[in-house]
């Protein structure tokens, strides 16, 4: 079904009733699974992903790298971040099965792996592997962004030291490339329908800074519009960071209240209600 972009200019409302700078509902949980070192569940609108982190641990015998002798791990004595993305057959509207060798899935994996490897303190874990497995349960646009956010949360849960959250968000533009509309407004957090029609990019930043960790743009867009889209995307990332940080803090507070963890140093100042 083609997206009716002409209606936007009338009321400045998008197909799902949001304004240009509004995120969809973001709902996240951490520590959803007892058997893993870290786990999370994230919903961005109707996009639902689950993440399970194991490690840092010695890589299993199967994954022995060609180097041999010195065990696994990435080059230069840092931990290897191994990401596997499983897109469930039932996740999209029409059932479509993606094999493990699917090129799109491979690209998602590499992007996430590189982004996280830059933020995680992998040099603390030489000869080890951090294996992150992501499961896509439902897709409605902004898939890469949701995967990055879920992976970040799970890494926080696993207690792997990292510089800051890697938070991601998508941004787009209100009119298509072909329309060549100079007055097009930027849009935040696109859903599947918008993503199909409009130029869009995924941007991930390092926490609340303006440092961009990932920038993926797979559609044609005029260079003049790019700056606006990027600015909106980065501000969206800051909003996402707030939300994720709140989730982590709530869980921490909950765990202290339940007595699962000891109140650590510096927690005294934190309000535990």
């Amino acid at each position: 079904m083609p997206l009716d972009t002409s209606a936007y200019s009338l009321a400045l409302l998008r197909v799902d009733g949001r304004r240009w700078n509004e995120l969809r509902r973001v709902h996240a949980q951490i520590r959803t699974q007892a058997a893993a070192d870290g786990s999370s569940y994230l919903e961005m609108g109707h996009t639902k992903v689950m993440c399970v982190v194991n490690g840092p641990s010695e890589p299993g015998p199967r994954r022995g790298t060609a180097g041999g002798g010195g065990g696994g791990g990435g080059p230069g004595g840092v931990a290897e971040v191994a990401v596997s993305v499983v897109v469930a057959g039932f996740s999209s509207v029409d059932r479509k099965r993606r094999g493990r060798g699917d090129k799109r899935t491979l690209e998602l994996q590499t992007t996430i792996s590189n982004a996280l490897a830059a933020s995680l303190h992998t040099h603390l874990y030489p000869h080890s592997t951090i294996s992150i497995s992501l499961h896509v349960l439902s897709q409605d646009g902004s898939l890469l962004a949701a995967l990055i956010n879920a992976a970040t949360l799970a890494c926080v849960d696993a207690g792997i030291p990292m510089t800051d959250y890697v938070v991601a968000c998508t941004a787009g533009s209100t009119s298509t490339y072909a329309a060549n509309d100079e007055t097009a407004d930027p849009l935040l957090d696109l859903n599947h329908q918008e993503e199909q029609e409009l130029p869009s990019l995924t941007v991930a930043t390092l926490g609340e800074t303006d440092r961009v960790a990932v920038l993926v743009c797979e559609s044609r867009v005029q260079a003049s519009r790019l700056e606006g889209m990027l600015a909106v995307g980065v501000s969206g990332c800051h909003q996402v960071r707030e939300i994720l940080d709140q989730v982590v803090r709530d869980k921490g507070r909950h765990m202290i209240k339940e007595g699962t963890v000891e109140k650590g140093m510096g927690v005294e100042e934190m309000e535990v209600d």
Partner: peptide, 16 residues
């Protein structure tokens, strides 16, 4: 379903 040992599975059924 989540078992007590922490293993977890999800099943989705789609019909065409």
């Amino acid at each position: 379903i989540c078992f007590a040992d922490g293993t977890e599975a999800i099943v989705g059924v789609k019909a065409e």
